[in-house]
Nucleic acid binder design. Structure first.
Lengths: 208, 208
DNA sequence: TACTATACGGAACGCAGGTTCCGTTTGTCA
DNA sequence: TGACAAACGGAACCTGCGTTCCGTATAGTA
């Protein structure tokens, strides 16, 4: 999945080693390295966030930087591949949740999930936190998809009466963006869930 | 005010042009430049945040970078002077609020103030957002003072029964740190106040 | 095993930002 | 007005990071 995501992302950027089908297959070591790079990038972006240097990924993968760039045209492309792999199922879950019987419960469940994912994956937290802020990153498209899906879910939850009427999706983005940003630092899981529940309660307009 | 704060901050760092009293006074142009630097730094850190380059400050002040460094040993020292000037009155207000008749109202008022200040001053938002996160910055000491003052105020508000019992100061730090971070981006004042009120309601444990 | 296209590693490059250095300018005082 | 210490500006330096380049190594093939 990450594979295809990466390939797709790459295809739109430049000619990559994942060449036309009929060509002779790539060398085995190249294939192996590609996997190692993807795994290393996952670890590094998860633990260090989007600002981690490329050298770090290369080192962990046991390859030179050149090899990283032979697989991905830019650092942004590597990041995008990783973020996409991580974010796609979340976006799909949000879309699927729109059809849930109880849109309110589904909406709040998604908020919890966003916080959990942010806590577990620093680059993702960066991405979600940035969703309501800058608009100039490669991953913006993905962030938009997430925001759109959440917006639809939010509208349904609100229409069902489980979210107070005087708030908007932008408020949710602001609260969750901020929370995501803090979430990774907090190794403290209970505190995080408590905060998410506070936000949920606030959006409901009533106490637990 | 900014002057004295800067001087104090500077004194603790290294020997600065603000030399021992009995020495002959500094040259008039030096004094003027110092003021210009402080003003420029204020503007730059307010609008661009803590990451703004020193050159920007020098340019706006109409001096060379060398002159900035003759007044402050490092960029961190400049930032600290500015943040201190901005944060000190807030910290004092938080301490004073501990003696308020209604600790609950005082506590929530401080939350509002923190959000407002963050929205108006990017570097301050950075600082507040970081309060619950890293521990390696020059401004950490200030952040700690703020957190300590807020913690005391929080305890009193909680003891007075206006804050639910099942949350801690760390939850407040997390929520407000995140909100501060988003707040600057949001030129939208109503949205910001709405979010702060949501957080306040959540901490109260009841709806408006 | 020998040959060659493919892939590799990592030095080198460019750029940005913090900090230092030094030749020049200028305020101050006699 | 002349002399000198104080202060100035900004080029130069250093470090970190993204990206490129090229001489070398090797998987695949005959």
């Amino acid at each position: 999945m990450a594979e295809s995501a990466a390939a797709a992302a790459a295809a739109s950027k430049a000619a990559l080693p994942t060449s036309p089908p009929e060509d002779r297959p790539r060398r085995a070591d190249a294939e192996r390295n590609r996997g190692a790079i993807l795994e290393a990038a996952e670890v590094v972006f998860r633990t260090q966030g989007a600002d981690a240097p490329i050298d770090e990924i290369a080192r962990l993968a046991g390859v030179g930087v050149g090899t990283v760039y032979r697989n991905y045209p830019t650092k942004a492309a590597v990041l995008e591949a990783i973020i996409e792999a991580r974010l796609t199922p979340i976006i799909e879950a949000a879309r699927a949740a729109c059809d849930a019987e109880d849109p309110g419960a589904a909406f709040f469940a998604m908020l919890r999930r966003l916080a959990d994912e942010s806590a577990a994956f620093k680059a993702l937290a960066d991405s979600i936190a940035a969703a309501g802020i800058d608009l100039h990153e490669a991953k913006q498209e993905l962030a938009n998809q997430l925001v759109d899906a959440m917006a639809e879910l939010f509208r349904r939850a609100q229409r069902s009466g489980q979210v107070r009427q005087d708030v908007g999706i932008d408020d949710v983005t602001m609260l969750m963006g901020g929370l995501s940003h803090s979430a990774f630092a907090a190794s403290d899981t209970p505190a995080r869930s408590r905060c998410v529940e506070l936000v949920c309660d606030a959006l409901r307009g009533r106490a637990t």
